[in-house]
Design a protein around this nucleic acid. Structure first.
Lengths: 214, 214, 214, 214
DNA sequence: GATGAATGAGCCTTCATTCAT
DNA sequence: GATGAATGAAGGCTCATTCAT
């Protein structure tokens, strides 16, 4: 097998992966995991069942792949924008913006994220180990940031992991509200609102007062 | 048909309803909606499939009925404890206590409530009109209370319905955390914590400061 | 549940078992294991797929059940007719008769027995542990008998288990021939022939000579 | 098309045929007909599915071809070693040797031959007309030999075709036993054993006695 | 000619729902 | 009314075969 051919094959597989993941996101978003049919995913991707199964092992693997893919991407973005920032609050605000922008740009994944029983805030009925790992990583990123803010006396004294969950839940409510309204236009307003509520959630009264004065 | 016979029949149906709803709560809590089997519900209720279908039209109706039943009960309790209280914040704190006590006393329903993709905070994949109505009623109860507090200058200025959702989400995170820890012992601590976070969520800085002084 | 009801249910299950096993025997005989369709078995039994699966766990279990059922029955018969006989050769001759009569009376099982890659002589690609156990038991029954004849100086000196296989193979050839000819009429001739060849296979020249004289 | 080109093409096809038949033998021996995958055959042959289908029409044709190929080869060898011999018994003994040496040298084909439900002794589920023809030819070769021996008064009086089947069955049991033991070392012992049993199967008591004396 | 990606018919199995007893 | 046996539609997945490159 020539390296060229291998590359072509790899490229094609990658193309299919993308095609399928998008189609699957759509189908899972519309129907939920159980009601989604593999045949519908294949049709939505414009390919045959056989091809679909050539790329993904099965339904669960496909579902998992969506979360890996999107979760990893989201995590990377969130990390890359928060790490450079020294101020924990500033980092958090930047994190929310990234989080919201990412999800609003991917409405199908957003629907899955919110409604498929795997909302990050609960970590409830997560279906695979990979999903649990992903969930845990995302939570830790936020919890660590919170810990820093708490140690700097900026944030309210509370279990950082619990606070991380509360933050996520908060954003999810705002996103769910946004989705329900079908209000694509005011992304910036949504972000502002989310940041306001985030600040109120984490900051001590003193921090709040200081912010007010500026 | 004599009225007496009718009454007997009604009583029997009522008994079955209760039996089935409890069994269904257990099964749905363990497996989720899709994986739950009607046969398992019937067995858990100690009745036959035929009888189950004599009382409930189908799986979806059964699922819906759980939410109606528990939702109505919860709503009534929450109403009855909050209505007599003049102070909106006090009413809210009392409401959370009731909410949490109610759910912790019904762990099966709690699991469904949190993890079955129909958490009240999102109103997401609600499966029937009735569920949406219920959801809306509960939300309004809280939103109205919030509005009163806002008009009294005690609460933060924000869309009351959104705030209601944020409150519910907050409690759900705390309850999910509670469930995950299997921490049955410290109900009172959970309520305290929920009330603290609730206060921080809704109160203006001035209100907070005043509370601090007392 | 009343004992009566249980009995009725058991009786019905038993009836279905029989019905299904007969139908399955037919289908497996016609098509072989892999080509046989569960739907065809159900149809042949005059029941629905659901009912079929209510009685048997799956295709393999059904196939196994046929072998258990028939194998056990055949083994019991063969044991019961050979055990009372002191003379090993006489016992063997009686055993063949039983074996052949049993299989000729069950032509579908005979076809499976001969052609489904699990002919007792080879013990080749046996699909389940149960089948292997059954095969081993049948073989031992014959091998033990052979050993007795050998120790009595009546039979040719050779590994008894190998001789058992040779005997089975011999009968199977005769049965296959019989099946191919569709010659239902001359069962007794078939048995005679099988006994003649059996004698020639196992007996020492001396034994043969003695028999000749009688 | 030049004759040369045609020759080249033919040579290539022949090469592929050989390659594929060997690979297929391996795969069918390992998995049996139904479980064998065409893809696995192609991979084992180091070619593509398309090429495989360019040489053989389908799975069944491939399976058939193995039997034709090997069967023809075996037949030729058996013929060539038996024809020059005048003594029918001697010819038979030579034939068995050839038969066993041939199969032991081709363990994959041996496995198929024994276990794939198409053992020559039964002529059972032969899948194509060609297979039946082949089977018949092999059987006739032996039957004719037997007939000669019978007419010479050397062999037991019995239907020659049936005797041919019994012989084949006998060898197959010995070969199956040999395969199961994984006993590659003692080929000569296996042949000796087979010849002994063959003699006992076909010879009249007088013939046996005469042999004994020598 | 060779490749192997793509196809899709087909089969095992499950479970919500019905209905004869 | 109660039962639970019976139904059969539906869906995940495989693999023989085809065909565009």
């Amino acid at each position: 097998m020539s390296p060229k051919k291998t590359n072509v094959r790899e490229a094609r597989r990658e193309m299919y992966r993308t095609l399928i993941l998008e189609a699957a996101e759509k189908i899972f978003a519309e129907s939920g995991f159980d009601a989604a049919k593999m045949q519908d995913v294949a049709s939505a991707a414009g390919i045959s069942l056989g091809t679909l199964y050539g790329i993904f092992e099965g339904k669960l693997e496909l579902f998992t792949a969506i979360h890996e893919e999107r979760g990893r991407e989201l995590l990377e973005r969130a990390s890359s924008v928060t790490i450079p920032l020294d101020d924990p609050l500033e980092a958090m605000l930047m994190g929310v913006r990234t989080y919201i922008e990412f999800l609003v740009a991917r409405p199908n994944y957003l629907r899955i994220h919110l409604f498929e029983g795997d909302a990050w805030a609960f970590g409830g009925r997560l279906r695979t180990e990979e999903q649990r790992r992903q969930f845990s990583l995302g939570l830790q990123l936020i919890a660590d940031l919170y810990r820093r803010g708490m140690e700097a006396g900026l944030f309210f004294e509370e279990d950082p992991e619990l606070m991380a969950r509360l933050m996520i839940a908060q954003h999810q409510v705002l996103l769910a509200d946004f989705v329900e309204r079908g209000d694509d236009a005011k992304l910036e307003a949504l972000i502002q609102r989310a940041q306001t509520h985030l600040t109120r959630l984490v900051a001590t009264p003193e921090t709040l007062a200081r912010l007010e004065r500026n």
